[in-house]
């Protein structure tokens, strides 16, 4: 599953949780409350871990599976926090035809995670994105602000090692 349950421990603070409770209280009883509450929750926590989704489900008195169904349906929600180094690999048309899929497999293999998730130590998170406007360098990826172009799968090990 691309956007699966996170492996990073929950680190939400009391302040964040209280802020979430206020948002829930403001929406309670309204139909269609799940979306705005989840949006606000993601704004607060940066992602939607199970602990947060349980607070939303309990607060709105709806089943957790319904909250999770919405959270996993929309691309705007993420179940994983972003890593210290955020890898964005372009899977746009140009990058794709130049072999981005093989590069992605190499990254997944090297980090032992799938697209949409994060390494257990929180160092790397991996996302696939659409065109970043550097088609001349295809296939291309960004790690935070660094851009890497003309990638081949065998370069991945050395590039990622630089960040460890």
């Amino acid at each position: 599953m691309p956007n699966c349950k996170t492996v990073v421990p929950y680190t939400g603070t009391k302040e964040q949780e209280e802020a979430l409770q206020e948002i829930i209280a403001a929406h309670k009883g309204q139909s269609g409350a799940t979306m705005p509450v989840l949006q606000a929750a993601q704004e607060l926590f940066g992602y939607l871990p199970e602990e947060v989704q349980i607070m939303v489900a309990e607060g709105l008195d709806i089943p957790l599976s319904e909250v999770y169904g919405v959270a996993s349906f929309y691309a705007q929600f993420t179940l994983n926090p972003k890593g210290k180094y955020q890898i964005s690999l372009c899977l746009g048309t140009a990058c794709y035809v130049k072999g981005a899929a093989d590069v992605l497999t190499a990254i997944e293999k090297k980090l032992g995670i799938s697209t949409g998730s994060i390494t257990p130590d929180g160092t790397f998170s991996l996302d696939a994105c659409r065109c970043i406007g550097a088609c001349g360098l295809a296939p291309v990826m960004m790690i935070n602000e660094d851009v890497y172009g003309c990638l081949t799968p065998d370069q991945i090990g050395a590039i990622l090692d630089k960040y460890n």
Binding site: M1, P2, P63, S65, Y68
Partner: peptide
């Protein structure tokens, strides 16, 4: 599960081709 029983432990997860029926966090 949701309407008759209001337990709601299963429902549709993910979307498009990935859609499947499952519990929260599978």
């Amino acid at each position: 599960c949701r309407k008759t029983q209001e337990v709601g432990v299963i429902g549709p997860n993910d979307r498009g081709f990935q859609t499947h029926i499952g519990s929260a966090f599978d």
